[in-house]
Design a protein around this nucleic acid. Sequence first.
DNA 1: GATTAGCGCTCTAACACTTTGAGTGCTAAA
DNA 2: TTTAGCACTCAAAGTGTTAGAGCGCTAATC
Lengths: 344, 344
Amino acid sequence: MSELTERQKDILGIIVGSYVKTICPVGSRAIAKSYRQELSPATVRNEMHDLEEEGYIKQPHTSAGRVPTDRGYRYFVDHLIAKEKLGPHVAALVAREYREHMDNIETLIERTSKILSTLSEQAGLVVFPAFEGLVLKRIELTLLGNDRLLVVWVTENGFVQDRIIDMKEEIPGEELIRMNQFLNEELRGMLLAEVKSYVLSKLAQAGDSLRVLYRTALDIIRDGFPKVEQRRLALEGSRYILEQPEFHDWQKSRLLFKTLEARDSLMDLVQGNRDREGVQVRIGFEHHCEDIWDCSVVTTRYRVKDRTVGTLGILGPRRMEYGKVIPLVDFVGRRFGEVLEQWL
Amino acid sequence: MSELTERQKDILGIIVGSYVKTICPVGSRAIAKSYRQELSPATVRNEMHDLEEEGYIKQPHTSAGRVPTDRGYRYFVDHLIAKEKLGPHVAALVAREYREHMDNIETLIERTSKILSTLSEQAGLVVFPAFEGLVLKRIELTLLGNDRLLVVWVTENGFVQDRIIDMKEEIPGEELIRMNQFLNEELRGMLLAEVKSYVLSKLAQAGDSLRVLYRTALDIIRDGFPKVEQRRLALEGSRYILEQPEFHDWQKSRLLFKTLEARDSLMDLVQGNRDREGVQVRIGFEHHCEDIWDCSVVTTRYRVKDRTVGTLGILGPRRMEYGKVIPLVDFVGRRFGEVLEQWL
DNA sequence: GATTAGCGCTCTAACACTTTGAGTGCTAAA
DNA sequence: TTTAGCACTCAAAGTGTTAGAGCGCTAATC
């Protein structure tokens, strides 16, 4: 709507840049000094007044300098940001981390979260891949005691999930082995999202002789499928947020950690708008988790075989170096997807 | 060494009790009032003076009341503590938690950690079972691509671990299947700690015809065995510590969370003295993790089939209600072991 | 019309000072 | 051995003052 003049943009940029670095409200004198042309503080003050009227900046109290509002940050991210190139050491570090002791997918995920956290000095987040988006390589049934069945699922890229189910009726050993073989033959190579409906349709078509087989198979798949709502999330480096001066306030940090422990809301927060491509930035009030309106999230989706299966990113105070963080999240998101695929 | 008189014990008990509840240094007047017999503050002061000389209590500053020292807490825990009986709701709550949606061992562990945390209002900790202490039920080899092998281990109680290894030379499909069968036949029912040495001894005895087979088996077991040093730890409710007034100080909470994120030192801290039976209490300086000398840990080992396989407990400020927490940890430790075994 | 210098005003942060109350230690008396 | 009483100490809370940063406004200047 309201267009900013070039000079206003410059000033907003300086305010954001300075505030992000120092956390001190930025005064007109300081801006005038760091402005490229000669300019008096008074002029700057006038411009600041206008910027404040438009809601890009505000004063914490009368006679203080200005700090960016959410709107200011948003404008900065959308129009003014100079995305910094990642240093060569970043790629090197990521490569090294991914080369060494990569024991399984879980380790990979946790390490990725740690990478994000260390490089951004914020909290790093990686949502575990959506199981339904992966391709089944193998399924193994193991009887525990007489009435419990352990179902182990292995996907093509080496992701392992397991679930224990109660059995209504006992199944004899040989029959279980046959069932296991049957499941593998029928389902191998199939997208996990489609497994259930596939068996369901087969059951509908099946003649009497196969009916029982499909029936049991369906039971096992239905009950033994890893729970969607229980999707995991790797969170590393939440301490970085605690170190930010704006969280020295005890009430704030208390609330923050309470929210971080409630994985559900955190998951919602991270997943954000599922349709959008590329790196997403949600600043302060823009997201709906009101307990952490003091925070921003920068996320991106990662893909395996051209299918989006998860989200990763970072969480930090609103006041963060978006210019650094955005390219980082973008880069790590791509690399992570690649590594996840490579194992296939 | 130094024996306390009955009255001194009473006074120490009152000081600990009151301080734990209120966090305020306890003065002589307050003690005199809550003492069972009539007693003047002056007398109490004399006793307090002696207690201070012996190192059981101290003054934060001149003209303040007294607070317990580590030694005071230790004496309290060893001699004065009145272990509270667990309310019936505790057993009920635990039973309910364990009945519902217990999807797999991981969920069980995380839920147990949460139970500990919720009921104690401290941070709850559960170290994942030591893989070596469990009994092998099944092992599955899956080829990922051409040169990576996924090894999935299943223990008798349904604990699943996996690890991806690089293969020096390709193994053809049929051979892998034979190897898989061979491993299962040889190793099923064996304690995982003994697996490696067993195959090693077999290799030594083996004639030329079987040599290659055992050689390959050994490679797979050696490389594919889950890493010991990477043992996981479920930590829930660290926010409760943040809520304690003594951690309103930003420096302290900062340090605490830094330490909590370094899982290695946390693991050392929790495991404590491996030889001792029953509930262990380590107060402040008694443990060796100096970053959290403001905290105490209450832990117990849990067992599967009479074999100690892990530790669980709670972590909180020194000032905690030991009388409540110790029975809780004891109870949950037993129940957890039982449930873990039941799945066998 | 845009820019600037200058002035008065406001508000915070820091510091010094005082007061209050809790709590102690010590001594002398019971 | 216990107690009453008094002097003393210290932290916490409140008060007042000052210095400085920064603003808005107005009038002068470019």
